[in-house]
Amino acid sequence: MTLATAASGGRVSVPKRSIRTPYPTWFFLPAAVIYAVLFLFPTLASLFFSMTRWTLFNWTFIGFDNFVQFFKEPFLVQGLVNTLIYAAVTSGLKVVLGLLFGMLLTSEIWARDYLRSVVFFPVLVSTVGVGITFTVLMHPTQGLINESLALIGLPGPGWLTNPRLALLSVALVDVWKGVGLATVIYIAGIVSIPRDYYEAARIDGADAVQRFWNITLPLARPATVTVVLLSLIGGLRSFDLIWSMTRGGPGFTSDVIASVIYKQYQAGFYGLSTAGNVVLFVMVALIIVPLSIALNRREVAR
């Protein structure tokens, strides 16, 4: 033991090794340029123009007046609440249904590959096309859904005209369209679990429910984290489906922050709508970044 080691209480300090890469540093330059052009520059430009009153030809710096006015919008609070409700409903259902479909489509069932393609197909369809199609299907008097309910004696509600149902109706359509991606992620997570665990559990007498709670659910946690984060990001930023189906109506009952921003842009308040985009960006970051850190930290701890 050296004198320096003895002086430090017998602890031997191990020098930290720097991470080495087999590629020269300049190899990363093209990716850095693309990142700066497509992300950093637009982000900084948005931050600047959110503090201006601008048109296509000139601008005037006004500080934080746009943000103050944005938070004074009468329907902003309702749009914020609707955004959180929409994100919670869509992400929750995608996690639950994606897990169930993932378990079903990794089991030994007939036409499994065909069913996988059927579940994933809505993901490939245009969001606006889906919105227009379901707007017709959910028509209160002539829609196929209510006409089918009438055949069995059930009164069909106003899916998109009832203020209490409009937002949830759009959320259900969003789930129908996006659950295929969640299912694919869960399928990848479930098939990566070694089969030996299930065989050992069967030998120990574990039934299907016990195998699910003790093997599938814990070991599919990375897939769950991915689905939760992607679904929340999509739900918080959702606009196109809501706009194509309800345009924030009836009234303002299905407005989300993105549709409020778009209405301000339509009215010609470009600086105000840019400030709204910055608010939306910050809100998504404040929700997603801490949640991602917490979920990944728990995953590492396990």
Rank of each mutant, 00 (worst) to 15 (best):
D204I: 13
M1N: 03
N66G: 09
F121G: 09
M283Q: 02
D113W: 08
R247D: 03
Y198D: 03
L165C: 11
V96E: 00
G271Q: 12
A188W: 03
V89L: 15
F134A: 14
Q69S: 14
A45F: 06
V119N: 09
G271D: 11
R247I: 01
K72I: 00
P290E: 00
I257H: 07
G271C: 15
P222H: 07
R164H: 09
L137I: 13
V128R: 06
A171F: 12
A294Q: 12
A206H: 10
I190P: 04
A294G: 14
P222L: 06
G143L: 14
S50P: 05
T52K: 12
V184I: 15
T141M: 14
L47Q: 05
L137C: 13
T141A: 15
H139D: 15
Y197M: 12
I62S: 08
L56W: 01
M138D: 02
W110H: 13
Y198G: 08
A4R: 11
F134Y: 14
G251I: 02
G129S: 11
P122G: 08
N214T: 04
T52I: 07
L40Y: 01
P218E: 01
A301Q: 12
P250F: 11
M283E: 01
S231M: 03
L151A: 14
F212P: 11
L236Q: 05
V278G: 12
I62D: 03
T2D: 12
F70T: 04
L99P: 08
F252L: 11
I19H: 10
V130H: 06
L38H: 06
V284F: 06
P290R: 08
V95S: 06
R116Y: 08
N58I: 01
N277G: 15
Y86Q: 04
E73V: 05
V279D: 01
L149M: 11
T127W: 04
Y35C: 15
V225F: 07
M283H: 00
P194F: 05
G10A: 00
S148Y: 02
V256Q: 08
D207E: 09
V12P: 05
L124G: 15
Q266P: 01
P42H: 09
L124F: 07
F48A: 14
G268C: 03
S107V: 02
L286V: 13
R195C: 02
Y35G: 13
S238E: 13
T135D: 06
I215S: 10
V173H: 07
Y23D: 01
V12N: 09
P24V: 08
S148V: 11
P42M: 06
Q210F: 05
L76R: 10
V256I: 07
T216R: 03
M51C: 15
E147Q: 10
T55G: 10
K16L: 15
E73S: 15
T83L: 06
E199S: 08
A4M: 10
G143W: 03
D65T: 14
E147P: 00
A220W: 02
R17S: 13
V89M: 08
R298F: 01
R116M: 11
